[in-house]
Design a protein around this nucleic acid. Structure first.
Length: 463
RNA sequence: GGCUGGAUGGCAGAGUGGUUAUGCAGCGGCCUGCAAAGCCGUGUACACCGGUUCGACUCCGGUUCCAGCCUCCA
């Protein structure tokens, strides 16, 4: 498979350094508030990548961290008058609930920073001993000048970077670009004892320490949002490469931003879209669909209609599956299921995760399914659609549930609907169209849409 | 100012040096008691100006506009 690597700025063929096991680390959330759609995008993108990797390689270890010590968390805890663990626990649970609604599978490892203070200490110590870091006034800083390759990931010239620093440079820094590995905590702030005094870790060191512990010193894939390229990933790269003396990451992957109505989503503009709120407008699968309808590296523009369009698109796919409801397919092993993936779909997915093109292939399958007459052909099309869906993390629910499942907005009584349909069908049988249409009108008013066919009458909720 | 990446039909969004992306919405038709679903058909789309080429939306140069990063940020 081919993946675009930010560092080399090219699409390269991906092979894990250990063919037995792919290692992937993705920057997870800082848990001080609810997840917004911009947090959801990398979660979904790398969930799809993990699903695909698992079909292509023997083993995959996927880690996504939880940052549970951070000044934003401290502020939220202080404001609420509770400990930081209360805040981080609350929003970790909320994050998990949101991701589950989006069909994101749990990762293999989900390290938390506060469980890795020892590893962080050891890594900082190693950097100091090797001359890459220095202690100053209760801080420990990474010396950017000590690492000649600094800036290679984000394509920044360290000289210009330092000259262009637009914030006041703290007096204890040897160089303006130096960044904090460890910083002192006041009496009222959370902190841990350390050789450099009581304090807490800087922002970047956590990912370096945790990825090394759980995935090894060199990892195959490191992912995150595009805004993390600098400074977060540049700094992580510097720390890890210097501490371990080996290449840190073989493929750097970054997803594009979600804009809202062509504007950056930000608190100051007040257009932050929380996943939990979007879930009131549409089902999680539709939100997931929107996130895969654009290529993962491209910016994605969120607007009022995208969710409705996604629901309609999924209606088409589930409609094809519903129509094949009685078509039995064999239970398949993983290997058999991969053989059901059409070449066009597979090639698109293995070419840097081209999900829009893969979806086009899926729509082509649905069209074939809608026109197929041969039962064996139908079987194979249904199996293929479901297999493709499993790569993308969609189409895995019962079509009837997709069309009839209750949402916040609809509270319907399925048995009552079935009764009304039966009455209408009795009227239809005696060609009493006025009664039949009156009943259908009542159902329409309830938000129920009917579909008559030779196989009987089906219904769905009008979303 | 420096560094990235964009600009495709009403909307979303791929891709390619010469052939229909795809989906949503619209329009016409088939089917249907009527609908719905499905099927068939349908739309001067590729920011602007030059250049290369037999031929460019696709390559090169420039212009305009948009977004991101430049130590809070998915």
């Amino acid at each position: 498979m081919f993946l675009y690597d930010t560092e080399s700025k090219t699409k390269r063929e991906f092979q894990p350094s250990n063919p037995e096991n792919v290692t992937m680390y993705v920057c997870g959330p800082t848990v001080y508030s609810y997840a917004h759609i911009g947090n959801a995008r990398p979660a979904v993108v790398f969930d799809i990548l993990a699903r695909v990797l698992r079909t292509q390689f023997k083993g995959v270890t996927y880690a996504r961290n939880i940052t549970d010590i951070d000044d934003n968390i401290n502020a939220a805890a202080a404001k609420a008058g509770v400990g930081i663990d209360v805040i981080s626990e609350r929003f970790t649970q909320a994050y998990h609930a949101d991701l589950e609604a989006l069909g994101v599978l749990p990762t293999d490892v989900e390290p938390k920073v506060t469980d890795h203070i020892d590893e962080i200490h050891q890594m900082i110590e190693s950097l100091i001993v090797q001359g890459y870091a220095y202690a100053a006034k209760g801080h420990v800083l990474f010396s950017v000048e000590s690492y000649k390759d600094y800036g290679a990931l984000s394509k920044r010239d360290p000289e210009e970077l330092l000259a262009g620093a637009r914030v006041d440079v703290a007096a204890y820094k040897r160089s303006a670009g130096d960044f904090v590995l460890w910083k002192p905590s006041g009496e009222d702030q959370p902190g841990w004892d350390s050789p450099w005094g009581r304090g807490r870790p800087g922002w970047h060191i956590e990912c370096s320490a945790m990825s090394a512990k759980h995935l090894g010193e060199t990892i195959d894939i490191h992912g995150g949002g595009h805004d993390l390229v600098f400074p977060h990933h540049e700094n992580e790269r510097a720390q890890s490469a210097c501490a371990h003396g080996v290449q840190y990451v073989r493929f750097w992957l970054h997803n594009g931003f979600v804009n809202v109505n062509h504007e950056k989503m930000s608190k100051s503009i007040g257009n932050v879209l929380l996943v939990k709120d979007l879930l009131k407008q549409a089902r999680g699968e539709a939100i997931r669909y929107v996130l895969m309808a654009a290529h993962y590296r491209a910016p994605l523009d969120w607007s009022d209609d995208v969710l409705q369009q996604a629901e309609s698109s999924l209606d088409r796919l589930y409609g094809a599956l519903r129509q094949l409801g009685n078509v039995e397919i064999k239970r398949t092993t993983d290997a058999e299921r991969d053989a059901l993936i059409p070449a066009g779909f597979k090639n698109a997915m293995l070419d840097d995760l081209n999900t829009p093109m893969a979806l086009a292939e899926l729509f082509s399958l649905s069209k074939q399914a809608n026109t197929a007459t041969d039962i064996e052909h139908k079987r194979s099309l249904k199996a293929s659609m479901l297999a493709c869906g499993s790569w993308l993390g969609i189409l895995q629910q019962d079509p009837e549930h997709w069309f009839q499942g209750v949402t916040h907005a609809n509270d319907v009584d399925a048995s009552k609907i079935e009764q009304m349909i039966e009455s209408r069908n009795t009227a239809k049988a005696s060609k009493d169209w006025s009664v039949a249409d009156r009943i259908r009108g009542e159902l329409t008013a309830m938000g129920v849409v009917l579909e008559d066919s030779a196989q009987g009458t089906k219904w769905k909720l009008d979303r």
